[in-house]
């Protein structure tokens, strides 16, 4: 989560939100959240689990979104 927040602080183009799954079950269902953390980018689920900084950026900046 912290990496996402750091990215939001570092760039005006990035927003980052933590969503507590048990309090928003409809949304968690929609995103098929079974394991946390589940990372969703621009509305599309991407991966589960914490990853290091470089990998995090690789995955959120992946060519599929550019």
């Amino acid at each position: 989560m912290l990496l996402a927040y750091k990215a939001a602080l570092a760039s005006p183009r990035v927003r980052a939100a933590a969503i507590e799954s048990t309090e928003f079950p409809a949304l968690a269902d929609q995103m098929e959240v079974y394991a946390v953390p589940r990372i969703v980018v621009n509305g599309v689920p991407q991966w589960d689990g914490a990853v290091p900084e470089r990998v995090f950026l690789d995955r959120v900046l992946a060519p599929a979104f550019e």
């Binding site: 183009r13 990372i39 980018v41 979104f65």
Partner: peptide, 13 residues
Amino acid sequence: LDRELAIDVFVTP
């Protein structure tokens, strides 16, 4: 970055 990026992280406490 040339576009908006909305990162949502589903968590539990």
